[in-house]
Computed example of a mutant assay.
Amino acid sequence: MVRTAIDRHVGRVSLVRVFSGTLRPEQIVHVSGHGLADRGHPDHDADERVAHIYSPLGATLREVPYCVAGDICAITKSGSAETGDTVSARDEPLLIAPWEMPEPQLPVAVVARSRSDEDALARNLARLVTGDPTMRLERNPETHQLVLWCMGEAHADVVLDRLRAGGVELDTEPVRVALRETFAAASKGHGRHVKQSGGHGQYAVCDIEVEPLPTGAGFEFHERVVGGAVPHNYIPSVEKGVRAQLERGLLSGHPVVDVRVTLVDGKAHSVDSSDAAFQAAGALALREAAEKGQVSLLEPVDDVTVRVPDGYVGSVMSDMSGRRGRVLGTEPDSAGGATLVRAEVPATELVRYAVELRSMTSGAGTFRRAFARYEPVPAHLTNELRTAHPGPTS
């Protein structure tokens, strides 16, 4: 499958190059696509009937009786065919190794201007992703942004122009990076949720201690309540309230990680206490602990490998330092004539790196990135990053 596009009038149009045999109308074929699941193209296998075969000539399609080896033809209305798929005989299914597609590294966040445009945006994006394996579509569950990963500015401009040509009114917005928060030191919090509005009220009081844990340790909840100050059946309610507040964040709306919370004391009422009241008290106690203690902002750090011609190594390494990156080393590329620069760089510094690296190396540099871990943000940059990358609940 050379390319698949979706025409608004004809539907799905797939250009097929025949490597062996003859493709004929009304023939049942096997369509197979594997190896691009990370780009939003799930692996798939399906048997389909080829209704008609066309010879493309510019923007027109001329129907032909068959297509022989060496020719390129077009088939329409396939239900599953995507760019890079293999079309083979149903009784002898084959799979040609998928093309080596470059990884898109330039994120562009798009948002529909109105609710009426949201459906049109979803339809048009589905069409573009079907025909363009160099583009990746991501709905970030943490920042709640719809992000298109493109090859570069020219690619992004083409994608946005096609979306607008399809009748979609949209805007772009700055890409936000998913940050984290954590406690930098131990703290204590007191949560009191007491309301009386006639009839049964709400009554719950709890005291907690919060301690930081090592990076990647996650969340722990313990209790050291003495004498039944908090009834046993309400202790899970406190934990539930604390967990909910950790997800919502404390100072900037980013999730809180790597902490241990211990319930040490509290009070309950025989009539007015409830599960909901102790959930609210747990959340209030955690917020007070954050106000009294030290909450640090964490940012994701990526492992980055940059491939550049030898003459640009110095410029790339100097630029990495300016991005708060740590250069881990360099080594010759096995293909020759280039050098691999390995570094660890905060993800907030890489949002536009695809464009800037291309400019720095006259288009000759490429890079790969992979998440490594979260690290504390330098104190002098905390407010700047909180403003530039707000959490979804801030």
Rank of each mutant, 00 (worst) to 15 (best):
R3A: 15
D7N: 01
R12D: 15
R12Q: 15
V29L: 09
V29I: 14
S32H: 12
G33Q: 12
G40L: 10
H41R: 09
E48K: 02
E48S: 07
A59C: 07
R62Q: 14
E63L: 05
V64S: 03
C73K: 01
I75G: 00
D91T: 14
D91C: 12
E118T: 14
L128G: 10
T130P: 03
T130N: 08
G131H: 11
D132K: 11
L148W: 04
C150P: 05
M151V: 01
H155R: 08
H155T: 11
L160A: 09
L163C: 09
E173Q: 04
L179W: 05
F183D: 00
G199R: 12
G199A: 05
D207A: 10
E209I: 13
E211H: 06
E211Q: 10
E223A: 11
E223I: 05
A229W: 03
V238M: 06
V242K: 11
R243K: 03
L246G: 00
E247S: 15
R248T: 08
R248M: 12
R248C: 08
V256W: 00
R260N: 11
T262S: 11
D265K: 05
D265A: 12
D272N: 02
D275F: 14
A277C: 06
F278A: 01
G282C: 13
G293Q: 01
S296I: 08
R307E: 05
P309W: 08
G311Q: 14
Y312F: 13
R326D: 12
V351L: 05
A354P: 04
S359M: 10
S362W: 08
G363S: 02
G365S: 01
A372Y: 03
R373F: 05
Y374C: 05
E375P: 08
P376W: 06
E384Q: 09
A388K: 07
T393E: 15
